[in-house]
């Protein structure tokens, strides 16, 4: 009978450790951080494209100085806002980043509308390449954002669910993460057609 008890204790410990979520919660938080890193790299990719884009447009559309300047300013502001992993639980910090990136998105979409007036530019190979790259980057941002939000949903869901909620409350103290909300202005950019 004794060995059954031993076995029972062993099973109990194994189940307790694997179902209380001590490990899985931390794993899910890691997934959130990784997904966020992906968003950051795609945002950086977009920021890196902009100087080239501005230079190309400038050569054809000198009269659009104001629109171009807005893009440059918005880029500067967007690249200055960075979040640390701890900031992912801070609604104000996330709000600030979303606002800065959203502003850049709308400045870019205004630029793309203005470009419509310059047929020479629209036929320029370099510009067409840049446009493809910009669209590709916007699409990557979308994908990274969706995956990040899914990771956050998983994580936020599990810290509220029993028994992980208890583990988190007494042992881990992990904070709820903020979603990276869909930015309506950002969706406009890839839709520019000729």
């Amino acid at each position: 009978m004794k060995r059954f008890i031993h076995f029972g204790v062993l099973i109990f410990i194994t189940f307790a450790l694997s179902s209380c979520g001590y490990n899985s919660l931390q794993l899910k938080e890691e997934t959130v951080f990784k997904a966020w890193a992906d968003i950051e790299s795609t945002l950086q990719r977009r920021a890196d494209l902009i100087p080239n884009l501005v230079a190309t447009v400038k050569g054809y559309a000198q009269h659009e100085q104001e629109t171009l300047q807005k893009v440059i300013d918005a880029r500067a502001k967007a690249t200055s806002v960075q979040l640390s992993p701890a900031d992912l639980s801070n609604p104000a910090a996330m709000q600030q980043l979303q606002a800065a990136q959203g502003e850049l998105s709308s400045a870019l979409s205004r630029l793309m509308l203005v470009v419509e007036r310059y047929p020479d530019l629209k036929a320029n190979q370099n510009f067409l390449d840049l446009q493809n790259q910009l669209e590709g980057t916007e699409n990557r941002i979308n994908v990274a954002r969706q995956r990040y939000n899914e990771a956050v949903e998983m994580f936020n869901g599990s810290i509220r669910r029993f028994p992980e909620s208890l583990t988190n409350k007494f042992l881990l103290h992990l904070a709820k993460k903020e979603y990276f909300k869909a930015d309506e202005a950002a969706k406009v950019v890839p839709k520019v057609t000729f």
């Binding site: 992906d38 493809n132 669209e135 590709g136 699409n139 990557r140 994908v143 990274a144 890839p190 057609t193």
Partner: peptide, 10 residues
């Protein structure tokens, strides 16, 4: 796996 790279056209 994929991360949204590529291009679209019509």
């Amino acid at each position: 796996s994929f991360g949204g790279g590529g291009a679209s056209g019509g």
